[in-house]
């Protein structure tokens, strides 16, 4: 069979592809159709215990583990008057510099309290460097039902060990100051 001219043969690919399923993903228009995989390494989050106290104890192990030197932590002492986390210390300053972060996840492996985890959020681009340094308030997880914004006491009758053993299910009315709303359920499991 005589060969078709090369110019015509080339169109074979074009016409053949017209009838195949499209592989182009319409980002950002259709981005919700293509969520990242569940274990994708995205922006970090600083988690809270069920009663709203922060999990971060300011130990700096994340900063220590970071190969890109992207994390800066400064711890401070909790006191009975001003408590942000169970136990002795909390992270007073917490910064992640996303111009440096390589999303390797070594920090979340290093975290001894599971305070630091990674979300799937990857849309971090910005037009200046300063906004890419995320502060503690940018990284803290949301206040879920049953949580009280720190500073406040630990659940009465519990110690930091109860928190680490995951026995806390939510805040109790005694933890809140009068101005704050009181959740319905909570206490110790």
């Amino acid at each position: 069979m005589p060969e078709l001219p090369a110019a015509v043969r080339g169109f074979g690919v074009t016409f053949g592809t017209i009838f195949k399923k499209v592989v182009t993903e319409q980002y950002p228009e259709d981005s919700s159709k293509y969520p990242p995989k569940p274990r994708f390494h995205g922006r970090h989050q600083l988690n809270r215990w069920a009663d709203g106290l922060e999990k971060c104890i300011g130990c700096e192990l994340c900063a220590w583990a970071c190969p890109a030197d992207a994390i800066f932590v400064q711890g401070a002492d909790n006191s009975d008057e001003e408590r942000y986390s169970p136990g002795e210390r909390y992270g007073r300053v917490y910064q992640i510099n996303y111009t440096r972060c390589i999303f390797c996840g070594l920090c979340i492996e290093a975290c001894p309290t599971r305070a630091l985890t990674m979300t799937n959020e990857f849309e971090l681009a910005d037009n200046n460097r300063a906004d890419l340094i995320y502060e503690k308030q940018d990284l803290l997880g949301p206040m879920l039902p049953g949580m009280l914004a720190p500073p406040h006491d630990m659940v009465p009758g519990t110690t930091d060990s109860d928190y680490y053993a995951n026995k806390i299910t939510g805040s109790v009315p005694q933890q809140s100051t009068p101005q704050q709303s009181t959740p319905q359920q909570g206490g110790v499991a």
């Binding site: 300011g58 130990c59 711890g75 002795e88 210390r89």
Partner: peptide, 8 residues
């Protein structure tokens, strides 16, 4: 008390 958890 003055150095506890301050640094490595």
């Amino acid at each position: 008390a003055s150095y506890r958890f301050r640094s490595r």
